[in-house]
């Protein structure tokens, strides 16, 4: 007698460390082996890492940066003792993971995607560049802003022929966004109306991830230039999969959860972002 056997989404499980390196002071690039995550992680989807210290129960959610075969890579900052535990991981060790989680960027639309990232917000955009790479109905322009070390350009450059970055000594992402717009002939003052595009011309879409202030500035820039902006938000999470309701965000659709309704939102629907204009 054959019996229906449901197949559930894999829960928390150990993943083997393939590589762990420090790109710059306090910025870690961690490669883990997990075929499910590698096969399914869409851009801006994230993975929970858990420390092996039973004293620390909260998940550490990180956006997936790249996937390769049965491996995936994360880039994150060491900001405390919890993330510090991941800094010294050695190949062959394991770390508990859960994911991929969340709703990522929707890249189905043929468009010219401008990926605007800041600091530790760049990994989901590298993943977006990877996904857009090789699609002939899309183009990805990468604009990254850093405090000082341009640590992720080389990963984005694997997937995009147009990677530009800037650090605080020269300006910020708005500086290079303005330069890019000037080249493209996109003028400001569109005031919230999406730019009409000529027949056959692809629309421009901005995907952003980074510090909140930066994303709000990018959102305001998008409104002023008639370009839709999709932001991947960061939030303090208690579970990461929609149960605990601690990562809420106020939107025009009501109070939503960053973890399962996001982390990607059209910034036009985020309440309080209007003030950034």
């Amino acid at each position: 007698m054959s019996e229906f056997k449901p197949t559930y989404f894999p829960s928390r499980r150990p993943a083997q460390v393939v590589a762990c390196e420090e790109l710059t002071d306090g910025v870690v690039r961690l490669t883990l082996r997990d075929a499910f995550i590698a096969a399914h992680a869409r851009p801006a989807q994230f993975v929970n890492l858990y420390t092996s210290n039973a004293q620390r129960l909260s998940p550490r959610p990180f956006g997936v940066c790249e996937v390769n075969g049965d491996e995936f890579t994360l880039i994150f900052a060491v900001i405390g003792k919890g993330t510090g535990e991941f800094r010294g991981l050695k190949p062959g060790q394991t770390v508990d993971v859960l994911g991929p989680l969340g709703r990522g960027y929707d890249l189905r639309e043929p468009a010219d995607y401008v990926l605007v990232g800041g600091g530790l917000g760049v990994p989901p955009l590298v993943r977006a560049a990877q996904e857009l790479h090789g699609r002939d109905d899309c183009h990805a322009t990468v604009l990254f802003g850093y405090r000082n070390v341009h640590f992720a350009d080389r990963y984005a450059a694997k997937y995009s022929d147009d990677v530009r970055s800037i650090d605080e000594s020269e300006g910020n992402v708005i500086t290079i966004l303005d330069r890019w717009a000037e080249e493209r002939g996109i003028a400001g003052g569109a005031d919230g109306h999406l730019l009409p595009c000529a027949e056959g011309e692809r629309p421009v879409r901005i995907l952003t991830c980074g510090p909140l202030g930066m994303m709000k500035a990018v959102s305001a820039w998008g409104r002023d230039h008639g370009v839709a902006v999709y932001a991947s938000l960061e939030a303090r999470m208690g579970c990461g999969f929609g149960t605990c309701v601690v990562c809420t965000v106020h939107t025009t659709r009501g109070i939503l959860k960053t973890c399962v309704d996001g982390p990607v939102f059209n910034t036009a629907e985020l309440e309080g972002w209007e003030a950034a204009r």
Binding site: G82, C244, V245, V246, T248, I255
Partner: peptide
């Protein structure tokens, strides 16, 4: 119920402190 503003959680050794406010 809308619940409480964020942040709603803080980690603490072997536990967490939460204030969702029954959203």
């Amino acid at each position: 119920w809308e619940g409480n503003p964020v942040p709603r959680t803080a980690e603490t050794p072997a536990g967490s402190v939460n204030s969702v406010g029954l959203q």
